[in-house]
Design a protein around this nucleic acid. Structure first.
Length: 273
DNA sequence: AGCACCACCTGTGGGC
DNA sequence: TGCCCACAGGTGGTGC
C-alpha cells in the first residue's frame, strides 16, 4: 500500500489532528503487531505519554512523544486512522487501538497483518533497532549532489531494484518508481553506472517531482489505501504507466508489464531507454 | 555485489 | 457461471 506520499499524507493530517494529545491504555487486538518492546511493556510505557511531533523517514511514520518515540510501518495494507469519538470505522481488520485521554483515538488496522509498531526510548534506539538498514529520506535528506554520490556507490545495480532498495534511499515504492522512470525515459533494467550525468540529473528531478505530485494529490489509492480520515487519494488518475498494461503511451506504443526485482513493472518499451 | 526466491497474510480479479 | 491461482502500494532472510 503506502509509499512515501501516502505516509506523508497521513503524517500531515495527524500532525494537525492529534499533536498535544495524551495516550491512555492501548487495546492490543493482535499483540503480534507490536514489534518492540514486548506487548505488555509497550502498553505500560505508552500510557500517559503526550504527542509532541510527527516525523517521517521513508515509509516509517515517526511519532515523537514526551518520553519516547512511537514508530509505525504500514507495509502493504496497514491503515492508521483518527476517530474523534474514539470508535473504529471498521472492526474486521482492527489490530491496535490507541485511545487518547479526551475520548478520541487512533486505530491501526491491517488486512494482511504485515505492518508493525515500535516504541523506543530515544533517537539512538530508533536508529539502531528500527531504522538500522534504512537510508536517508529520498525527499528530505537527499539533494542532487548526495544522490549522485549514492548512485556512484551502486553502479552495477539495476535502477528498478536500486530505487526500491530502502537502504539506498528511503521512500520509493513500486508505483512511484515505475512512474518516475517513465517520466525521465529511463529503462527499469538500466544499471546505475551506465547513466550519463544529465540522465542522472533527470532521474533525480523525476523522483522529486513524482513524489511531490503524489503528495499534492493525497497519495494513490490503487486498492486499499486510505488516509487518516478514511478518504482515498487521487493520484491514481494521474498514473502514466502503473496498472496500464496494453494501454497506449503518448508515443502510441502499448505499455508493457514485466517482472523486475520481483515486482510487477510497467514501462514503455519505446520511450524508456 | 546483486539477484532470485520464499515467507509472511488475506482478498480479489482474470483466465479458463 | 464458477473455480483457481497468480498477484497485490513491503520487507527480511537465505542461498547462489
Amino acid at each position: 500500500m503506502p509509499e512515501l506520499p501516502e505516509v506523508e499524507t497521513i503524517r500531515r493530517e495527524l500532525e494537525a489532528l492529534v499533536c498535544g494529545k495524551t495516550f491512555t491504555e492501548p487495546v492490543l487486538h493482535m499483540p503480534s503487531t507490536i514489534k518492540r518492546p514486548a506487548a505488555e511493556e509497550f502498553s505500560t510505557r505508552l500510557t500517559g505519554q503526550r504527542i509532541e511531533r510527527f516525523d517521517r523517514r521513508g515509509k516509517y511514520l515517526v511519532i515523537n512523544l514526551d518520553r519516547g518515540i512511537l514508530v509505525v510501518h504500514l507495509r502493504m495494507t496497514g491503515n492508521l486512522s483518527y476517530s474523534a469519538n474514539g470508535l473504529p470505522y471498521e472492526e474486521r481488520f482492527l489490530r491496535v487501538s490507541l485511545p487518547f485521554s479526551d475520548g478520541s483515538a487512533l486505530h491501526y488496522s491491517d488486512m494482511r497483518r504485515f505492518g508493525r509498531l515500535w516504541l523506543v526510548e530515544d533517537e539512538e534506539e530508533l536508529e539502531t533497532e528500527v531504522l538500522k538498514r534504512i537510508g536517508p529520506d529520498i525527499l528530505n535528506e537527499v539533494d542532487l549532489e548526495k544522490f549522485l554520490e549514492l548512485l556512484g556507490r551502486r553502479e552495477r545495480s539495476r535502477l528498478k531494484a536500486l530505487l526500491l532498495d530502502q537502504g539506498f534511499a528511503a521512500g520509493m515504492g513500486n508505483i512511484y518508481t515505475d512512474e518516475c522512470l517513465y517520466r525521465c525515459s529511463i529503462h527499469p533494467r538500466r544499471q546505475a553506472g551506465t547513466l550519463s550525468r544529465s540522465e542522472a540529473e533527470d532521474l533525480y528531478a523525476a523522483i522529486q517531482e513524482v513524489l511531490a505530485d503524489g503528495i499534492e494529490y493525497g497519495g494513490t489509492t490503487f486498492r486499499d489505501y486510505r488516509n487518516a480520515s478514511g478518504a482515498i487519494g487521487s493520484f491514481q488518475s494521474k498514473l502514466a504507466v502503473y496498472g496500464r498494461k496494453g494501454e497506449k503511451c503518448r508515443c502510441g506504443t502499448p505499455i508493457e508489464k514485466t517482472k523486475e526485482a520481483g515486482r510487477g513493472t510497467y514501462y514503455c518499451p519505446n520511450c524508456q531507454k
